[in-house]
Amino acid sequence: MFFDSDLLMSALRALTPILLAALGGALCERAGVFNIGLEGMMLMGCFTSVATSWFTGSAWLGVLAAALAAAAYSLILAVGAVTLRGDAVVLGIAMNLLAVGLTSFLLRTVFGVQGTFDDPSLAGLPLVGGFTPLAYLAFVAVAVAALMLSRHVWGLRLRGVGEAPDAAATLGVSPAKYKYAAVLISGVLCGLAGAQLALGNVTLFSENMTAGRGWIAVVAVMLGRAAPVGVLLAALLFGLAEAAGFRLQGVGLPQQATDAAPYVVTLVALFLSTARRRRRTANSPSGATT
């Protein structure tokens, strides 16, 4: 049996970090900030969680520190793109590069190792029913984000800010405030995503260990059209691809083929979704729902 509950379990484990990061990306997108720095924020979360857990012995302090550190790191995007009106794309790229450099530098200066830090006594996150509490939190976050965006006054204002900042400003709503909030929340979520990756999925830190997951999250935001539930489905697709990849490796496919699988699946999903959207707009000029 190829599709069984084990596969689903490992898919859910694989999707958690992506989902958390993508939720943050979706909030930014809704607020009108194009956030491609998810990868870097996540990596900062990975390192901080491992370092804090190592020095305090508490994985939970590691999670907390990761959220705070990544939120602080996200200020680069908030200040740069919102206050100084810099280019969000370039800032995001620079943040990703900076995170790789900074964490590798700190790995050597703090732990004195190169490549990977790994120790049996490093405290990881506990498992509850096969998942870390962060995995449950990710699903709760989807529900909360969905509710906030569609029903809450804050969500309404955020969406307005993202769509027409000057219109919001004429009504006394400060676009900068909402954009900052969205970016900082995305920082917290990416920090949690990093902690989940480094203290949940595995228990170690290695250079550039996010390995493109932040970018997959960016794509998940596009695929899910920045709606929390859409983002969840997109992340699920990626999780399944990664889990199926592992499974196929057991059947004898080379690791390289399965490494590439999530990216190929993501790309194909993007093709299909844009193609479908195009066909639909071609058929019905008024546009369709769903």
Binding site: R151, H152, V153, R159, E163, A164
Partner: peptide, 29 residues
């Protein structure tokens, strides 16, 4: 009323009208 309208195209008429001066119930719109 500005010459170029300051409206949110993707929101409904009601949402546009009450934006930033919303009637609320339990914090929700």
């Amino acid at each position: 009323v500005h010459q170029s309208f300051k409206l949110f195209d993707s929101l409904t008429v009601a949402e546009n009208v009450v934006y930033a001066a919303e009637p609320r119930r339990f914090g929700l719109l």
